[in-house]
Nucleic acid binder design. Structure first.
Length: 276
DNA sequence: GTTAATACCTGTTCGC
DNA sequence: TGCGAACAGGTATTAA
């Protein structure tokens, strides 16, 4: 499930093939993904050059030479499939197909169709409804202990739910919320407003570390993918708590079985002894 | 205004 | 073996 590290890995994988290249083929194979695509989606991209591939939170941003920006979200099953030359056959759920002047073909495949694409311009990007209101990038200097503490102040919701709130910090999903809380030693049930001072400092650091390590591990996975037909979007990471209900806590002095609970409809995994 | 619940979507897994 | 229910989850929308 693509969260910030997976999206960043996809960005890094695609950038060498897309940046500076002209899109000679743009094919839209259904009128909508999660929402309807803009009616002029194809003509606004066809024949134009991609200047840069960027990322904001879990969104990929392709900056086009005329100031158009393609906003893409992988949802939870979205994948970017890249091939040299036209693919022999399209797969089920290949919704968008692009080709560059170098005959590199890119397919956006999304079975569950939680992904989305939209167009904006450089001028309207920050106020676009998908991006306006997003909190700070967790790996930027703008995100730190005091900033996190300020965002959590007064929040009467569990800290786990607050971490998933993209207004508090952008790009964290269910997996990395669990992992960061475990690393920070904070219970997922703890009231968000109580995460202040040293606790906020510890949590901000944990968020940065867990994301940075995941990006690094995605990068190593990427090198393997480069050689074959590239599938960008799914990577195996090793998690300390996520999806490990009943398994032993890895902390040297613990070893207790990890627990699972449901918070706002989402599974949370944690260690009752190590997190408080 | 804030927080919680629900809908969206479909491939996979699990239990009977 | 076959079938249906449960589950995964980011975000917009609706409800409380």
């Amino acid at each position: 499930m693509p969260e910030l590290p997976e999206v960043e890995t996809v960005r890094r994988g695609l950038a060498p093939f897309l940046e500076g290249r002209r899109l000679v083929h743009v094919e839209q194979r259904r009128p909508d993904l999660r929402w309807p695509l803009p009616p002029d989606f194809v003509p606004r991209l066809q024949g134009r050059r991609i200047i840069a591939l960027r990322r904001r939170a879990k969104y990929l941003l392709a900056e086009i030479e005329d100031g158009t920006v393609l906003i893409a979200h992988l949802g939870m099953s979205g994948r970017m499939l890249i091939t040299q030359g036209r693919p022999a056959a399209l797969e089920k759920h290949d919704h968008i197909v692009l080709a560059t002047e170098d005959d590199v073909w890119l397919r956006f495949n999304d079975a569950r169709r939680f992904g989305s694409m939209d167009l904006a311009t450089l001028e309207t990007l920050d106020s676009h409804k998908l991006l306006a209101g997003l909190g700070p990038e967790p790996l930027s200097n703008a995100f730190n202990g005091p900033a996190l503490a300020a965002a959590l102040a007064g929040k009467r919701t569990p800290i786990k739910a607050a971490l998933l709130d993209q207004k508090v910090v952008a790009g964290i999903g269910n997996i990395y919320a669990c992992e960061a809380l475990y690393r920070a030693g904070l219970s997922p049930r703890r009231l968000a407003a109580s995460v202040q001072g040293g606790r906020a400092e510890k949590l901000a650091t944990a968020v940065k570390q867990v994301l940075a390590e995941a990006i690094e591990s995605g990068g190593s996975t990427l090198r393997d993918y480069r050689q074959a037909d590239g599938e960008l979007g799914y990577f195996q990471h090793s998690f300390k708590v996520y999806d490990r209900e009943g398994l032993a806590c890895a902390a040297a002095d613990c070893g207790r079985p990890l627990l699972r609970l449901v918070q706002s409809g989402r599974s949370t995994f944690y260690c009752a002894r190590c997190q408080s």
